[in-house]
Amino acid sequence: MWSSSFLSTRAEHLPSGSDLGHIDVLGGEGADSSRDRGPDRAMMICLSVTLLLDGLRRFLSGKERSYRSAAVDSSFSLGLHADG
């Protein structure tokens, strides 16, 4: 089981395609976040979430055994690998 949250760095309005934000991912094996790291790993949140969800769809359907998502305009990345 895994869960995630997405947060715009500018909470006073709805995010646009170019707003920066952060992602938190929690899973049975651990957690990762783009927040509270140096250098700042804020990403273009709407574009990054779209790419992440598309890759997760392929990974969870079994079409791919591993997946690495690179955030847009950030050095943050998330890697997944299926055991067995």
Rank of each mutant, 00 (worst) to 15 (best):
M1P: 05
M1L: 05
W2A: 14
S5P: 01
S5A: 12
S5K: 03
F6T: 13
F6Q: 14
S8V: 11
S8K: 10
S8R: 15
S8E: 01
A11N: 06
L14D: 07
L14P: 04
L14T: 01
P15T: 03
P15Y: 07
S16V: 03
G17T: 07
D19W: 00
D19C: 03
D19F: 01
L20Y: 11
L20I: 02
L20A: 11
G21I: 00
G21A: 00
H22T: 08
D24K: 09
L26E: 08
L26W: 05
L26P: 00
G27W: 06
G28Q: 10
G28N: 14
A31K: 11
D32H: 12
S34L: 03
S34Y: 02
D36I: 02
D36F: 04
D36Y: 10
D36W: 02
R37P: 00
R37S: 01
R37M: 00
G38V: 08
G38R: 12
P39Q: 02
P39G: 00
A42G: 14
A42C: 10
M43S: 02
M43A: 03
M43V: 00
M44G: 08
M44R: 14
I45W: 05
L47T: 07
L47Q: 12
S48M: 10
S48A: 03
S48V: 02
V49I: 14
V49Y: 14
T50S: 09
T50Q: 04
L52G: 02
L53N: 13
D54P: 03
D54K: 00
G55M: 05
L56R: 12
L56Q: 03
R57E: 07
R57P: 02
R58E: 15
F59E: 13
F59G: 06
L60E: 08
L60F: 09
G62D: 15
K63S: 13
K63W: 09
K63G: 15
K63Q: 12
E64Q: 15
R65W: 02
S66C: 09
S66V: 03
S66F: 13
S66K: 05
S66I: 04
Y67C: 01
S69P: 07
S69E: 08
S69V: 12
S69R: 03
A70K: 14
A70I: 09
A70M: 07
V72G: 03
D73C: 01
D73T: 00
S74Y: 00
S77N: 13
S77R: 09
G79H: 10
H81Y: 14
H81L: 12
H81V: 15
A82E: 07
A82G: 08
